[in-house]
Amino acid sequence: MEALKYIGAIISLFGSIFLFLGALGLIRMPDVYNRIQAGTKASTLGTILTLLGIGLIMPSWGGKLFILIMFVIITNPVSSHVLSRAAHHIGVNMYKNTVTDLLEKDENNTNSKPEKQ
């Protein structure tokens, strides 16, 4: 029982390190889209690991922590997708070394289909 608490504390420490690295990527990345990717992916994994470690330390809190983990898994990618789509829609500039822009190509294709027919 004591070893499980130490394993939970180590997992919580890993999760908080992931949160810290995600926030560091928020400062270091050159672009809005890169910042969205670095920020949300790393912070989702970090929060899941932190809550999992707390659930290993206190096993009787498992129900509420499971609800919280499922909530973070569902809502965080949705909010990042909506935000990046809004940023692309209002025309935020990309980094100068960006290779491709698939959403732009996709929207152009769907807009030009009715004109061809």
């Binding site: 949160l19 995600g22 926030a23 928020l26 969205i36 920020g39 949300t40 940023a87």
Partner: peptide, 29 residues
């Protein structure tokens, strides 16, 4: 520390979207 780094981007961020993504990271942390 992660909250403080996201707060730096929230204050400095050149565009509105930067501030919103910093707010998202702050709420998750």
């Amino acid at each position: 520390l992660a909250l403080l780094l996201a707060l730096y981007r929230f204050i400095k961020g050149p565009h509105t979207t930067d501030r919103v993504i910093a707010f998202d990271v702050m709420s998750i942390a």
